[in-house]
Design a protein around this nucleic acid. Structure first.
Lengths: 234, 234
DNA sequence: TGGCGCATAGTGGTCCGACCACATCGCGGA
DNA sequence: TCCGCGATGTGGTCGGACCACTATGCGCCA
């Protein structure tokens, strides 16, 4: 009573992916809910366990499902972070001109997010931002700097109140992406400039000045963007 | 001579995914290139064909690989459109407050893209925009209107010169997403307003006025955003 | 001689059955 | 009462078989 309308479109696995996505879209599967076993699911949709496993794997990498060995398959919370994890793949596999495009997008979103954060950030969140700022200036270990740099911007994005935007920015700042771009940038002695820019962003946040925050954030990303552009240009 | 560093981390399939991604990242696999057969790949990485197939399926849905039945497996062109196709999944599975967040992101990106387009659009591209605008106003079929609406904005995004941004906006305007949101919006007699807003956007493009274009686009998306916000609010 | 069509080999797609690794729960003993 | 260990069920892996489709090239026909 469930598969009679077999449209035969595409591969069996592809159909299974669509079916499961549809079940979630229609609300028949709630976030966090456990699915039937692979064997049962395969039987219900009239296909082999192998094909069903491929479908499940596909939805797993998309951040829609989560498979726990020995326990079962569960729908994720379907939050922005879950679904946009794959965004990092784009950043990782991009190069050349597309890296500049990604930085351009980050500049647009980051400047807006920082402006919003200036208007909405709480005292606690601001304290957290300051903590990462201080930690960043207190060490010379590039790895640690990078980690706090990431956390610094993530805290701001969260304070902007748009989790989806924060997740996208997170993807645009994936470790491998930043490592690839930042390495060359920082080697040119840009540490001092980066610290100055971070300080300017923090100042604007503390002053609750959205326009200053927007400008500072745009300049911060724009610096790297311009540097990368010249690297690729001639 | 190729798998001795087996770190045993995670599942076999997961390792295969990382390996293939790494091969592409390191340039050992070029866009458009054909991969070895599933059987060979599995043998090279010392795993079963089943596990390798899951890895390939995963990379296929991510838009990194493309499998052609009877022919072979190929690396995609790795262009923004290929990799960001999965962005539509986010839009499809989101609901409630996250829909507003997505529209907010679209407003930010779309307004910037429209402003850039105003400065860069060519005569041919502008003519194409006008064609879709006219077609949109010449019919009452909601499906056709939606199609030309999509094409209208896509043409503008392309004219902005950032393919990655165009691909993201494409995902944020996926058919099912717009159908879900637009339906209710248009039922409230918003057709006239939408036409007015589209006309304003076109006017700003024709006048090569980036600021007017930014404002018009932001207002256009913002209208829907506000409507959706009130729908969810009380 | 030239082109067409079919046989064939090779590829991804699907299915099956078996076994392994891990998580969970319940029963029995201390 | 509580702890521990084994039974059970789950996802993870494997190997092989067969199907569906493509591409290639050979041989036949015009």
């Amino acid at each position: 009573m469930d598969d009679e309308t077999a449209p035969q479109k595409g591969t069996v696995t592809q159909r299974a992916i669509e079916r499961i996505k549809a079940m979630i879209g229609e609300g028949r599967l709630e976030p966090g809910q456990r699915l039937p076993t692979e064997r049962d699911l395969a039987a219900q949709l009239g296909m082999s366990r192998s094909s069903m496993r491929e479908a499940i794997r596909a939805l797993t990498v998309l951040g829609v499902l989560e498979a726990r060995h020995g326990s079962g398959i569960y729908v994720t919370q379907l939050e922005a972070g879950d679904l946009l994890e794959t965004f990092g793949v784009v950043a990782d596999l991009s190069r050349g001109p597309r890296l500049v495009e990604l930085l351009e997008i980050r500049r647009i979103l980051e400047s807006t997010a920082t402006a919003l954060a200036a208007a909405r950030i709480t005292a606690d969140q601001l304290a957290e931002v300051e903590r990462h700022l201080a930690a960043m200036n207190a060490t010379d270990d590039p790895e640690e700097i990078l980690a706090h740099d990431l956390a610094f911007h993530r805290e701001i994005a969260v304070a902007a109140g748009n989790e989806t935007m924060a997740a996208i920015l997170e993807g645009l700042s994936s470790r491998t992406f930043r490592a690839r771009v930042w390495r060359g940038y920082q080697e040119e002695g840009a540490f001092a400039r980066t610290r100055r820019e971070h300080a300017a962003i923090h100042r604007a946040l503390a002053a609750r000045d959205p326009e200053a925050a927007r400008t500072a954030a745009a300049a911060h990303v724009g610096e790297v963007e311009e540097w990368l552009r010249t690297q690729l240009g001639p």
